[in-house]
Amino acid sequence: MKSDLWQISPGFEEVMPAEYRELVDNGPFGKKLGVADMGTFKELLEEHPLCAGCGLALSLRLTLIALPNPEDTIIVGATGCSSLAFPQVSVHNIHSLFGNQNAVATGLKRALSLRFPGQVKDVVVIAGDGATCDIGLEAVVHSWFRGEKLATIMLDNEAYANTGGQESGMSRIGTVLNMAPQGKKFSKVNFPEIAKAAGCAYVAVAEPSRPKRLEQAVRRAILVAREIGPAYVQLFTPCPTNYKFKPSETLSLIKKREQEGVFQTMEYLSPEAEAYIKQIEEAKR
C-alpha cells in the first residue's frame, strides 16, 4: 500500500466519520503493532455486531491485531457470523459466497502475485467451521493440494451459529444441536491432521484465552504462507448463544475443556517452515 493511501484528502476531514479519522491518526498501518499494544491504538475492527461473549468476535479481533502487515493484507471470508463483522474491518475484504472462500482466495492471490511481483500482499482466509470443514471442504483442501500461498484460519465455534445453531462437522460427538436432534452421531473432524496430510507447511490450534499464543500462530501462518506454502490455523471460539452458556464463561469454558483433556492447542511446522520462522525470529532479536 502507498503510505498515504489512508490519509484524508484536504477539506474532507470534517465529513469523514470519527472512527475513520481515528484510524488515520492512530491506526495500525505500517506500525508493526501486536496484542501487547491493545488499547493503545485504533484497531481494524470497528465495534462488531456479534453476540455478547462471542468467542469468534474476540478471536477475530485478536487475529486482526496479529496481522503482520495489515496495510498489505486482503481477507477473504465466507457466509457466517464473521461475515457480519467484516464490513466493519478496515482492510480490503471479500465475502463472496458460502464455502468458496479458498477458491476466491486462490484467484485473488495469483492475481496479486502477477500485479505486484516481489511485494508483500498477504491473502488471509478467515471463515467458520461450517464454511471450512463442510460446505467449503473441497475448495479448502484443493487449495492446499495445489500449494496455494494462503493462510487459512478457521473460527471454530463447533456449529453453524449464524443460521441458528446447527450441527457441523466440527461439533463434538453426542452434542444435541439443530439437525442433530438425537445428538451428533460422528466425531469432531480432525482438521489439523487433514491440513498436514494435504500439504500445509504450518498448522496450529489456538484459542483466545491466550492472546500471545494466538498471535504467534496467526503471524507464523501468514509468514509461512507468504514464503513457503499453505498454512492453517484453527481457533477454538465457543458460542455462548447456541451452546447456551453465560457470555461471561466463554474463556473459562475453553480452560475447562482443556482440563478435561478434550481440547488442546498444537503447532506443527514443516522442516522448511521451521527453518524459515527460526531465521525470521532470530533476525528480530
Binding site: I94, N100, A103, V104, T106, G107, R110, A111, R115
Partner: peptide, 11 residues
C-alpha cells in the same frame, strides 16, 4: 469463484 477472486484482484 477463483475467476471472481482474480477479477477482484484486478487481472
Amino acid at each position: 469463484s477463483a475467476v471472481a477472486g482474480a477479477a477482484m484482484g484486478g487481472v
